Simulated assay, not measured.
Amino acid sequence: MVVIEQEPETEEIREAHANAPPADAPAHGEHESDEESFEDALTEEQLREKSLNQANDAKEEGNKLFRSGQYEDALLQYEIALQIASELPSSVDVCSMSHGNRAACFLKLNQYTDAVTECTKALELNPSYIKALVRRAEAHEKLENYEEAIADLKKVIELDPSNDQGRRWIRRLEPIAAEKREKMKEEMIGKLKEMGNSLLGRFGMNLDNFKAVKDPNTGSYSLSFQR
């Protein structure tokens, strides 16, 4: 009988045997890649949910600060909510409400132009956002933009026909808006007259030299020059 002498097993060989997978084990990476894909899918969904929760938490914190009169700090929390939510799908409500709430802060801080801007952003996301329309109307009134305020209030009535407060508000603003229109018209006529006198002055005349005469038959007017 011939005996084949085997070399002694080295440390490296023993480690290789010890770490070798069973014969029926799957190839390296097969299960790992499936598990990683599944985990990645879950993680992405969980991250979106976590981010949305963070946005809502920031918005709620802003609400608490607003109620306690800390408007500057509330603005910061609403901005954080917007920064988080703007990167997420299906976060329109959080974004529109955060813009609307920032508008409420700016109203309290007497920063009416900023309030109008924030309400407009909120309404671009949600055109039926009544609170944003009301806040923008309030800011417009403070800025003496009465026509714009009335337009917003009419939209409120359109969305909520039972809103009697909006109707009373419109009735209060309409004579103020009419008075402003008349005042602006008089100012414009005054400026035009001043400009006309400046031009006619070169010829030794002014607009007082011209008188509008109405034709009783046609109702039209003609200009009559008088020295």
Rank of each mutant, 00 (worst) to 15 (best):
V3E: 14
V3K: 10
I4H: 09
E5F: 14
Q6M: 15
P8G: 15
T10G: 15
E12I: 06
E12K: 11
I13W: 05
R14D: 08
R14E: 14
A16Q: 15
P22M: 08
P22V: 05
P22E: 06
A23P: 00
D24K: 00
D24A: 13
A25K: 00
P26I: 06
A27L: 13
E30N: 06
E32Q: 10
E36S: 13
S37I: 10
F38P: 01
F38W: 15
E39S: 15
D40M: 10
Q46E: 13
L47N: 15
R48S: 03
R48D: 06
S51R: 10
S51M: 13
S51K: 06
Q54I: 06
N56L: 12
N56Q: 11
K59C: 02
E60I: 00
E61K: 08
E61H: 08
K64R: 10
R67H: 13
G69A: 11
G69N: 05
G69F: 05
Q70W: 06
Y71P: 04
Y71M: 06
A74K: 00
L75A: 09
L76Y: 09
L76D: 05
Y78Q: 03
Y78F: 08
I80E: 12
Q83T: 05
Q83R: 12
I84P: 03
A85M: 03
L88A: 05
V92G: 01
D93L: 04
V94C: 03
C95L: 04
C95Y: 01
S96R: 09
M97L: 12
H99N: 01
H99E: 01
G100P: 02
G100W: 00
A104D: 07
C105I: 14
C105Q: 04
K108Y: 05
L109R: 02
N110H: 09
Q111C: 11
Y112Q: 06
Y112S: 11
D114S: 15
T117S: 15
T117V: 08
C119V: 03
E124G: 14
L125C: 12
L125H: 09
Y129T: 01
Y129R: 10
K131I: 09
A132W: 02
L133E: 03
E138G: 05
E141G: 04
E141W: 03
Y146N: 06
E147G: 13
A149E: 12
I150E: 10
I150P: 09
D152P: 09
I157N: 08
L159S: 07
P161Q: 03
P161H: 06
N163Q: 05
R168L: 12
R172V: 01
E174S: 11
P175F: 06
I176F: 07
I176E: 12
I176D: 02
E179I: 07
R181T: 12
R181W: 08
R181D: 15
K183S: 07
E187A: 11
I189R: 14
K191C: 08
K193C: 05
N197Y: 07
L199K: 14
L200Y: 01
G201R: 00
R202L: 14
F203V: 11
L207R: 07
N209K: 07
F210Y: 13
A212W: 11
D215C: 09
P216C: 03
N217T: 10
N217D: 09
N217F: 08
T218D: 01
G219C: 00
S220P: 00
S222D: 01
R227I: 02
R227L: 08
